[in-house]
Design a protein around this nucleic acid. Structure first.
Length: 509
RNA sequence: GGUCCCAUCGUCUAGGGGUUAGGACACCAGAUUUUCAUUCUGGUAACACGGGUUCGAUUCCCGUUGGGACUACCA
């Protein structure tokens, strides 16, 4: 195989979509697998849709995800510039070649004239309303206008675009690494605009020219590009680059979790999960979208999840480090069908990776959450809390959310438990237990258990009957980490205080 | 509408002419933890349909249906 050079080529029109991260990941994986080069190219040829900060956002998102860029925007390289807006002369030069060879032509039609054409063709009942071989001769372009007229228009600065002159009817073949052989008749391809009236190239031109000049070996992109791939093949042919044409791999789409269709921000919002890797504030609406990072997803979890959405190793392995992904990855094992996005699986991966973090990291998560709350915590206790909480968390912040009661005494109590378990027996045990533990200076989980058993035995009450009530009086809730350990962490004085409060406050049913 | 792409449990998927159609998530149940969660064990659950080809198709071919993408001077 020739040197692998792949590119991720987003346009800076807003935050990077989660699907973009997956596309970038697959590119990156292929590059690393073959010791190739991962290139970041910014496709900012649409000046109207340019969003300030979007490029920086893309860079930060990729960095957070662990997708390293070898060459391109942000790092430079031998084929700079990598921002298409800075490559204007290159496209102009290339489009001129097409013009000279008769593969492209100038078109002067106004927007209104284009609309009129579509209406006209629609009225005629044709199957297509395209600017193509069947309609181009009735339009205002360098094919229909006299040479003088064309020269005059160009000279006086009339707006124009350059269109590709697509052959009337010939089969365009391409081999997609994922989909196999695809054939489209050129009659189905329209005379796409190559150069816009503002002098900027369209995606089609820029992408082909750049991929060629940057010696891209594989074009890995979303399936939404498949319909225009024949057009790109035609461009390679007309430029005389067909031999150097990159291989194509059109990835299956990420689909919405319910129903069908491309995954969109709307779906994500509706289902309450992030669509962007990092927080993003929309400049126009001022609306903040919470990112994966800020929600508490670990990059390794997100990457593992995304990698398996459309690709699989053919083994039963599910957990992959980035290094393992690189080793196992191959384009051949990418599926053809779209993959529905299931956030549950992402959560499962996150839970998995979080639980396997070393103590210190979890400790850091807890400490920084506490700091935000202005709460200080004995390091020894913090360690115990982390240990007791580690199997119950999906996101780092669950350490704080789920363990809040360690730091803040409950003021309200779970109503169901009150209704079901808070009875005379329970109160009897609470009172006795509270008195007994108050006598102990430093309460251990074992001691707490012994005391509780002794108390219930003496009162002739089953421990299991009042455990829920005890938990509730200590934490306010119906569930939580090991209760005896909770008592140890809280200490005898605080535990006794909470039980007293509960006994005084809760109305007996 | 036209062009192209796609089709195995609810979801992600493995598999492949003869299999008890495998795994994971989710879900449910049991065990254990005198609670909840964890953990463990088990369970429910799929080859869209119709024609071929074949001794035999879920697998190969064709069609139907369903879904999706594209159809801009956006990428």
């Amino acid at each position: 195989m020739k040197e692998v050079r792949v590119r991720f080529a987003p346009s800076p029109t807003g935050a990077l979509h989660i699907g973009g991260i997956r596309t970038a990941l697959y590119n990156f994986l292929l590059a690393r697998k073959h010791g190739g080069t991962m290139i970041l190219r910014i496709e900012d040829t649409d000046q109207n849709r340019f969003v300030p900060g979007a490029e920086e956002y893309i860079l930060q998102s990729l960095a957070w995800a662990g997708i390293k860029i070898d060459e391109g925007v942000g790092v430079g390289g031998p084929y700079a510039p990598y921002r298409q807006s800075e490559r204007k002369p290159i496209y102009q030069q290339h489009v001129q070649k097409l013009l000279d060879a008769g593969h492209a032509y100038y078109a002067f039609d106004t927007e209104q004239e284009l609309d009129a054409m579509r209406e006209r063709l629609k009225a005629r009942g044709g199957t297509s309303q395209q600017y193509d071989g069947s309609s181009r001769m009735s339009m205002k372009n360098s094919l229909t206008l006299s040479a003088n007229e064309v020269a005059k228009r160009l000279a006086d600065g009339s707006p124009f675009v350059v269109r590709l002159k697509v052959p009337a009817s010939e089969e365009v073949h391409l081999t997609d690494l994922i989909r196999g052989h695809v054939v489209v008749n050129s009659s189905q391809v329209d005379d796409k605009v190559l150069m816009k009236s503002d002098g900027m190239p369209t995606y089609h031109l820029a992408n082909v020219v750049d991929d060629y000049l940057m010696k891209i070996s594989h074009v890995i992109r979303g399936e939404e590009w498949l319909p225009s791939a024949p057009l790109h093949v035609l461009l390679y042919r007309f430029f005389g680059w067909e031999k150097e044409m990159p291989q194509f791999a059109h990835l299956p789409l990420l689909l919405k979790p319910d129903g069908n269709g491309k995954l969109s921000k709307r779906d994500a919002d509706k289902n309450g999960f992030p669509i962007f890797p990092l927080n993003w504030t929309d400049a126009e609406s001022g609306q903040l979208s919470i990112g994966y990072r800020e929600t508490g997803y670990l990059p390794e979890a997100l990457i593992n999840f995304l990698a398996l959405l459309g690709w699989n190793p053919g083994t039963e392995q599910e957990i992959f480090s980035l290094q393992e992904l690189i080793e196992a990855f191959s384009l051949e094992r990418i599926g053809k069908a779209g993959a529905k996005f299931d956030i549950h699986k992402a959560q499962w991966f996150n839970q998995h990776y979080l639980r396997h973090k070393p103590d210190e990291e979890l400790l850091n998560y807890l400490q920084s959450a506490l700091q935000q709350q202005g709460i200080s915590c004995d390091p020894n206790n913090a360690k115990k809390i982390v240990n007791v909480m580690r199997d119950r968390i999906t996101f780092p912040n669950d350490l704080w959310e789920g363990g809040k009661f360690f730091f803040v005494a409950p003021t309200a109590f779970d109503e169901q438990v009150v209704a079901k378990k808070w009875n005379d027996d329970a109160v009897k045990v609470m009172n006795a237990f509270k008195d007994k533990i108050s006598e102990v200076a430093s309460l251990t989980a074992e001691a707490a258990k012994e005391i509780l058993e002794a108390v219930t035995a003496s009162l002739n009450i089953k421990t299991g009957q009042i455990l829920q009530a005890l938990r509730m009086s200590i934490t306010g809730g119906a569930s939580g980490p090991d209760l005896m350990m909770t008592l140890e962490i809280l200490g005898s004085a605080e535990s006794a205080r909470r039980i007293s409060y509960a006994v005084q406050t809760i109305k007996r049913s």
